[in-house]
Amino acid sequence: MNQAEVSKLVSQLKTRVNPRLRKFRNPKGPEGRLDKLRKTVTALIKHERLELNYPRADEARMYAERLISDAIRYGDTHRTTMEMADYWLVEKQLVHKLFKVLAPRYENYNISYTRLLRAPRPYPGPEDEKAVLELRGNPYPPLLPDNTSNKNLIHNILLEEAKKAYRAKKYAEIAAKIDGVEVPVDLKVSNLNLEESSSSEVNQDDSSSKSP
């Protein structure tokens, strides 16, 4: 079989591609649909974060992902990619942004280049579902609270302690394997050490709280 592998002909996207495209019915037919999406994709590349109705955001996301991945894959010397960029970006100065800013930014990403979040809708008001579509690595403040990087949050403290306990257990097992016969003695010693270290922490904590 001398057939090219189809999966390698197009860039593999990191987002879900809908099996059936949305129609976005309008008087101009399919061309009008693409005009709408071009407008959204251009705005996304320009502003990096948009609030949209959910269907439009979901649909435009697929085209934006494909455009960026092609720009990374083929670069700005590839004729077809340049034509696609010319078609999808209504404002032509954004072609430069696509190849010179976004392609280097996403070069080493192994996750999607865009992010889609469901947004609240005004109540009472129109019942359309809302969404926020953004390019990753944008300069705006984050939309979601950051629960992972702060080590002082209560769940992070607890997870850190769980990690320490797990490691102590593993070290004890390894030590037991090495020493062979002296298994129970070693286990006891390691446990004691662990308890001592943690109780000393407690004492420090107590004394600091009482001292003032």
Binding site: I157, L158, E161, A165, S198, V202, D205
Partner: peptide, 9 residues
């Protein structure tokens, strides 16, 4: 109960 210490797990 002893003084609360989150680090004790």
């Amino acid at each position: 109960f002893p003084s609360p210490n989150v680090k004790s797990g």
